[in-house]
Amino acid sequence: MTVRIRKYSWQLAPGHIRDIRQRVFIEEQQVPPELEWDDTDEIADHFLAVLPDNTPVGVARLFSSLNETAHVGRMAILPEHRGKGIGETLLRHLLAEAAGQYDEVRLSAQEHAIPFYQRSGFHVCSDVYDDAGIPHYDMRCLAPELAVAALEERDHPLLLEADRQSWLFENETRMLALMDSLAGQAGQRIWLYDRLLEHDLYDRFRFRELISALARRHRLSEVRLLIHDDKPLVKRRHQLVELMRRLPSRIELKLVNDDYPVEDQPFMLIDREGVLYRHDFSKPAGFCNFSDSGRVKLLSEAFQRMWDAGRSSLELRQLPL
């Protein structure tokens, strides 16, 4: 169905926006009025979806926190207009608005709506919680620009175990977006093999936070870092190393043993399905797959052989705390 999306500030928003939220959230879903109307409305951009004859059918809002992360919220479609693709059009419009300005878009999804958001590049990133008496999950998209570009050709872009098409990359920006999108969905393990733990790749705040979140999630979490050279880690403080020393049972680092065969290309493995593979240690070029159990199995076997033959870093062990 053809719809147009109009954007307003709260001060200039037409009454239709408030009316739709009143009907859907307060009357239909029984959300208390004092929870529905908040101060965020004043700083958010508000979007109204209208039919070709100007009939208002849906709303949503978009705002940022610390100018780093965009938040989608208060998304509602009138009952008589649901199931026609209007919500998807509205969501993707907001995602396009955020892409280019923000590296992350977050939202709070009611449990039944998770598949709807997954089709547009979002993945679950929290346990269930209660919001106004309704079960919710936090969801996020860590590569909004990539998601927007792929929405027409992929059913579940960037979703682990569901996005079955390869992503190619030839520059660092695209590679890091894919790397973070994979790492952010790890449920149990991240295995990383590279020549160095380069600061520009692996000492970024967001990547460290994703590694930390996995390591702290449960006792079976496993982060393995397998590298060739630890001297740069000794010369310059690396936050992944600091994190490893705080969580030694969850994050381990080893050096490859050159007396045994080693792989010629770096890669990162996420659980049993995700892989980011570079063609060369020194270049940000390669491919990323979110659903490739066959390749992950082969690379896991190669990683395990190198890991079993690997050795601990004596220099890191001797660093002062």
Rank of each mutant, 00 (worst) to 15 (best):
V3D: 12
K7F: 08
Y8V: 05
R18Y: 15
D19T: 10
D19Y: 14
Q22C: 06
I26F: 03
Q30P: 07
P33L: 13
L35I: 08
E36M: 02
T40P: 13
I43V: 10
I43G: 15
F47E: 01
F47K: 08
L48G: 01
T55Y: 07
V59W: 06
S64C: 13
S64G: 08
L66N: 14
L66H: 15
R74A: 00
M75L: 08
A76W: 06
L78M: 04
L78G: 01
P79R: 02
E80I: 01
H81T: 03
H81N: 12
R82G: 01
K84Y: 14
G85F: 08
G85N: 00
G87D: 06
G87I: 04
L91D: 06
H93G: 09
H93C: 12
H93I: 00
E97V: 03
A98W: 05
Q110E: 00
E111D: 15
A113Q: 03
P115A: 09
F116Q: 05
Y117L: 09
G121F: 03
G121D: 03
H123I: 04
H123L: 12
S126H: 05
Y129H: 07
A143E: 02
L146A: 13
L146E: 07
V148E: 00
A149E: 09
A149S: 13
L151H: 04
E153P: 13
L159G: 12
E161M: 04
E161G: 07
F169I: 04
T173Q: 15
S181M: 03
L182Q: 10
A183F: 12
A186V: 02
G187E: 04
Q188K: 06
R189T: 09
D194P: 02
L196C: 10
L196E: 04
D200H: 15
R204W: 00
F205Q: 14
F205W: 14
L210C: 02
S212E: 10
L214Q: 07
A215D: 02
A215W: 05
H218F: 06
R219M: 11
I227N: 11
I227T: 03
D229L: 03
K231M: 15
P232V: 08
P232T: 03
V234C: 00
R236L: 15
L240E: 10
L243M: 13
M244R: 10
P248D: 06
L253S: 03
V256C: 12
P261M: 05
Q265G: 12
M268Y: 05
M268G: 01
G274C: 06
H279P: 14
P284V: 07
C288D: 00
R295P: 07
L298R: 13
L299N: 12
S300C: 06
Q304D: 15
Q304W: 11
Q304L: 12
R305Q: 15
S313D: 07
E315Q: 13
R317P: 05
L319R: 13
